[in-house]
Structures are given as C-alpha cells and as structure tokens.
Simulated scan of single mutants.
Amino acid sequence: MTFSAEQQRDLKVQRGIRQVEDKLVQWIQDALDNTQYSKPEKNSKNNRDKLEESQFRNLVRVSDTTESSEVVKNFLRYQVGRDRKWGRGPQSLAERIVTDIDGNLRTTAQNIANSADSSHTNEIHIELVRRYLGYGARYLKYLNDGQSI
C-alpha cells in the first residue's frame, strides 16, 4: 500500500501529536495543582464555589466547535469575568491556561508541523488545545471527587 505525500504528512502529524500527549497531561495537571482557583475544601459538604468539571467541559466544548485558539481564550476570559472560580491574576488557573495555549501548545504545534513538513500549524495547535483541556477536565474530576484512590 502506497501513501500519498499528503497522507504521509498527516500520519507524521498524528504520530507527533501522540508523542507529546504525556507533556499535555503534565502541563494541565501542573496547572491544576499549582495555580489559584476555587478548589474543593477537604471534608466539606458545601463546595458550591469550587470549579466544577461541567464548567471545564464547557471550555472543552468551545474548543471542539472552533478552529481558533483565540475563541477558546475569549470564552475563558468571559468565564473569569462572570465569577472567580477560574481564579484571577497572574497566578490563576485561567491565566496559566492562556499562557500554555500561547506558549507550550503553540511551540509544540510548530515543532510538530516543522518535523512533518506540514503547513497546518493552526490545525495542530487547536488539536493540542482540545486534548490539553480534555485531560484537564478528567484531572479536575479526580481532584474534586476521586482522591481517595
């Protein structure tokens, strides 16, 4: 079976994305572990003000419906304006996510595109954003409900 040049590039891109998944997980877990946002209080039955997985999943949904990382950041900033659950300021979870989107994820997308000889950097970038946020939603569920493993 012979693959066209475009198919070979696509396969290289997919391989490149799979190879950085550990980094994506580490970056979002580090963000959730080491930034300021509304976290659940241990042994408290009243955690109404904590950041919920559903709020994080809304951000994931936005990333799934756009090809623009700017739209994702815009929605996150809108959420920050609505309430303080995402944190505020330079040490906040929201700011860290924006920084990762503009920094780690963009650089990684460019590296994958370059190594695959692809001109689809934006598509790679938004795919990395989607995965990063999806892993974040999973980890937040663990932080909120599953730490008794």
Rank of each mutant, 00 (worst) to 15 (best):
A94R: 03
A116D: 02
W27Q: 12
Q79T: 10
L24Q: 03
F75Y: 15
K85D: 05
E53H: 03
T66F: 12
E123D: 14
N104T: 08
H125P: 03
A109L: 04
S69E: 12
K45F: 11
I101P: 00
R131A: 06
R61F: 04
R61L: 11
N47C: 08
S54R: 13
T107R: 13
R131E: 14
A94C: 06
R88N: 09
S119I: 07
T108Q: 07
Q79H: 07
E70S: 13
L59G: 09
N47F: 11
S63R: 07
F56Q: 05
N47L: 04
R106E: 07
Q110T: 03
G103L: 05
G81A: 05
T99F: 07
I97E: 04
R88C: 02
L93I: 02
R77I: 08
I124G: 00
N104F: 04
L32Q: 05
A109T: 01
E70Y: 05
T99Q: 14
P40F: 06
D117F: 00
Q29N: 12
W27G: 00
A116F: 01
E52K: 09
G81C: 04
H120R: 12
S115F: 05
Q26I: 07
Q55K: 13
E41L: 14
R130D: 14
K42Y: 02
V60R: 12
N34W: 04
G87D: 04
T65N: 15
N47A: 05
Y78P: 00
Q29H: 10
K42I: 13
N111H: 03
V72Q: 10
R15S: 08
